[in-house]
Amino acid sequence: MKRHGFRLYRHYLSLSIRSSMQYKSSFWLTMLGQALTTISTLLGVIFMFQRFPEVKGFTLDDVILCAGIVQLQFALAEMWARGFDRFSQIVRLGEYDRILLRPRGKILQVFGSQFELSRIGRIIQGVLMLVYALVRIRLRWDFLRVLTLVNMLIGGTGVFTAICILRAALCFFTLEGLEVMNIFFDGAREHGKYPLNIYGDKFLLFCTVAIPYALVQYYPLLYLLGRRADWFLPFLPLLALWFLIPCLLLFRVGVRHYQSSGS
């Protein structure tokens, strides 16, 4: 049964992608819209740096690198964890009942329920920002730096996915929209443009320990830029994946609550 889990996910994926291909103009418009929002965020950063040449020792190029990586982490999570992102809708429309009627893992089915192809718009933007910054900064590339970057993408996508799952889990307890959670989700993307230490030590500590967001952004960024050389920094982003565990557990508790309360 488990053996086919991956194959089943691929099948879900292909149906999702074929579905979104059905609406070509909507697909392109969504992509365009996302491109525009991203550009406006980028402009905000650029204007800021016209006033101040650097922020806490980070130059404009450093910040664009940081923002590009966060953009990619966020877009990848939104793309593949879209089912959790729109989970309140799934519950409200009764689609969740259908999930419970199928002999498959609930989490696999929610992941499979929707794959948001249009997030490719944001992904392309992120890549462009990344490439631009990397060309300007002229990093000396070595194996560990490449590994750091890859791990940042894996770990960051994981953290954002975990936040999506956390938000979905809370849907089981209240069916009303939870704007509070957007602080962590959209908020993380917004303030994640800048290296997290500019917000002060307490915030940095919070983002290291509570929601392990600094592990995929600030610390490995220092390594990437050659400001710190500790051996563990390239691997630190993967450590952030621990955050998936409590979120998935909470989701399981929520499922149990749903099945016994039936709201």
Binding site: M1, H11, L15, S20, Q22, R102, R104
Partner: peptide, 22 residues
């Protein structure tokens, strides 16, 4: 309610169900 995919041919939804139920 429906359990079919809205935007793909019905036969494709059936194919997915085949995989879901093995």
């Amino acid at each position: 309610r429906t359990q079919l995919y809205w935007d793909v041919p019905v036969g494709d939804s059936y194919g997915l169900l085949q995989d879901i139920y093995d």
